[in-house]
Amino acid sequence: MGTNAPGSGRERVLFVLKTKGPQTAARMAKRLSVTAMAVRQHLAVLQAEKLIDFTDERRQVGRPARVWQLTPKAYARFPDRHEDLAVGMLQAVQRAFGDKGIERLTAERTRQQADSYRARMAGSDAPIEKRVATLARIRREEGFMAEWRRRGDGSLELVENHCAISKAARICAKLCGDELQLFRSVLGEDVSVERTEHILSGDRCCTYCITG
């Protein structure tokens, strides 16, 4: 199966590791529809640039499998939504107006986001899959590398493989809380949304379990 990863071969390898998590060279080759040798050549360059590293995982049979993953340095290669400006603004509001100023600012931001999202979302009578698919598309456009899927138990998962506001969220945790409330609001009262993985807690991605 191919991938929508952009750019050069090395960028495509980074994209796969970012969106799919740690991978063997063989698995990446299959996803990118290239040879394992081609992937290994890209891996050698990326490792020399300290953008990836690996662990050797033991298997019940045969040799250990070499599994590649991104390093912290690699995350700077992905969209940051002009976060330096956002962080500076948050810090300025905090100094000038205190915690209440931050609360008012984030509440207004969430309200504006909700209005914008709802203008593009299907109504509450639309199938939940359609609503989640639209939300994933909006978040993908905003740089969160979002995708969605149906789980074996019938629930849906919204996965954000990148946090486009991570610097701001690290100094203002309310942004993450407001984000969860935003999803609940725009998906409708008949839908339950719970965050099960969180990048700022050390997970690879932010994952939301959605039922309705």
Results as ranks from 00 to 15, higher is better:
9 G>W: 05
15 F>K: 00
16 V>H: 06
22 P>E: 13
29 A>H: 08
29 A>W: 05
33 S>T: 11
34 V>R: 10
34 V>P: 07
37 M>H: 14
38 A>E: 14
39 V>C: 10
39 V>L: 12
39 V>S: 10
40 R>G: 05
41 Q>L: 06
41 Q>R: 13
42 H>M: 07
46 L>Y: 00
50 K>Q: 02
50 K>W: 02
53 D>W: 06
61 V>W: 13
63 R>T: 01
71 T>P: 03
72 P>Y: 06
72 P>V: 03
73 K>I: 03
75 Y>W: 10
78 F>Y: 05
79 P>K: 08
84 D>G: 12
92 A>E: 14
99 D>F: 01
99 D>V: 04
100 K>N: 12
103 E>V: 03
106 T>V: 14
107 A>M: 03
111 R>P: 00
113 Q>Y: 08
120 R>M: 12
120 R>D: 04
122 A>C: 09
123 G>V: 01
128 I>M: 11
128 I>Y: 04
131 R>I: 11
133 A>F: 03
134 T>E: 09
134 T>Y: 04
138 I>K: 12
142 E>T: 02
143 G>I: 04
143 G>E: 12
146 A>N: 05
154 G>R: 11
161 N>H: 15
165 I>L: 02
168 A>D: 03
174 K>C: 01
175 L>C: 09
177 G>L: 02
178 D>K: 15
179 E>R: 14
180 L>D: 02
180 L>S: 10
180 L>Q: 13
181 Q>M: 09
187 L>C: 09
188 G>N: 04
193 V>H: 03
198 H>E: 09
199 I>C: 02
199 I>H: 11
203 D>S: 05
204 R>T: 08
209 C>G: 02
211 T>C: 07
212 G>W: 06
